[in-house]
Amino acid sequence: MTPVVRTIAALIFPFIIIFSFYVIMHGHLTPGGGFQGGAIGASAIVMLIVAYGARNVKKKAKEESLSIFESIGGLVFVIVGIIGFVAASSFLYNFLVGEPLFGTIPPFGSNPGILNSGGILPILNIAVGMKVIGGLASVVLVMALAGGDEE
């Protein structure tokens, strides 16, 4: 692409990533969550692929490392579920409610929200977000690399 597109893409990229992290981290307070925020973050990487070409993106982020990133997200999800099975009664039990980490119980009814709440929900949101970012970005990267040799 032209230098104008490349410059604007490089300027916008960190803001899209920050918005993606915001949507993932506030999944238990506002609309959104792991899947949605992960799709936003993956679209930022797709924008870089469109602007700079798949080969230049591959120098910074290989699809192997992206899919390892994705698998770590899936492992965190399952491990949190098994911890709920061991520490409490059932698989994916919300064992962090009432604990100091992520355990603050909000008042009943509508309220502004506390970031340090939600039990295991923020951890699962981060895990799913890692999964979606790594997975979608690696699929688009591999498709762009397999598509052809043009820049």
Binding site: G33, V97, P106, N111, I114, S117, L121, L124
Partner: peptide, 22 residues
């Protein structure tokens, strides 16, 4: 809100009450 400590009831259903589905 009491059981999952989350304000967003939709997320609490998706990740807690129906976490296995997720």
């Amino acid at each position: 809100q009491n059981e999952t400590a989350a304000n967003n009831a939709v997320t609490s259903v998706v990740f807690d009450y129906r976490g296995y589905d997720t």
